[in-house]
Simulated scan of single mutants.
Amino acid sequence: MTQQHLPALVIGNWKMNGSLTANTALLESLRRDIASFGHVNVSVCPPFPYLAHSVALLAKSPISCTAQNLCHEAVGAYTGEVSASMLADVGCRYVLAGHSERRGLFGDSSERVAAKARQALNAGLTPIVCVGETLAQREIGLTEATLAAQLLPTLAGLSIADLEKVVLAYEPVWAIGTGHVATAQQITSVLRYLRQLVADTTGADKVARAMPVLYGGSVNPTSAVWLAQLPEVSGVLVGGAALKAEDFSEICRSFGQR
Score class of each variant (00 low, 15 high):
208 A>D: 07
39 H>V: 08
67 A>Y: 11
101 E>Y: 02
212 P>A: 06
192 R>S: 13
166 V>S: 12
74 A>T: 12
94 Y>W: 14
43 S>L: 13
155 L>F: 12
36 S>K: 14
7 P>A: 10
31 R>C: 11
215 Y>F: 10
231 P>I: 04
47 P>L: 12
45 C>F: 13
147 L>R: 05
151 L>C: 02
252 C>D: 04
77 A>G: 04
175 A>S: 10
52 A>F: 11
123 A>R: 06
186 Q>Y: 08
64 S>E: 14
243 L>K: 14
204 A>T: 12
7 P>W: 08
208 A>Y: 07
69 N>L: 05
247 D>Y: 00
171 E>A: 03
61 S>N: 07
60 K>D: 15
247 D>E: 15
186 Q>C: 04
70 L>F: 10
127 P>H: 13
100 S>M: 01
79 T>E: 09
206 K>E: 14
218 S>E: 09
30 L>T: 09
192 R>E: 13
253 R>E: 05
134 T>R: 05
237 L>M: 11
155 L>Y: 12
107 G>K: 07
64 S>L: 14
54 S>C: 15
85 S>G: 00
115 A>D: 11
228 A>E: 02
172 P>D: 03
242 A>N: 01
215 Y>D: 09
54 S>A: 15
151 L>D: 02
184 A>K: 08
86 M>W: 01
131 V>N: 08
250 E>C: 04
94 Y>K: 00
34 I>N: 04
243 L>E: 06
145 A>F: 05
61 S>Q: 10
105 L>N: 03
231 P>W: 01
201 T>Y: 13
67 A>C: 10
201 T>I: 04
146 T>N: 10
139 E>N: 15
139 E>H: 11
219 V>M: 07
143 T>I: 12
72 H>D: 12
57 L>N: 11
41 N>T: 15
233 V>I: 13
214 L>C: 09
226 W>I: 03
202 T>A: 09
10 V>N: 08
161 A>G: 07
114 A>W: 09
115 A>R: 11
12 G>W: 07
179 G>H: 08
77 A>W: 04
202 T>Y: 09
176 I>K: 06
80 G>E: 08
151 L>W: 02
220 N>K: 09
46 P>G: 14
125 L>S: 06
86 M>C: 00
155 L>A: 13
180 H>R: 12
69 N>D: 15
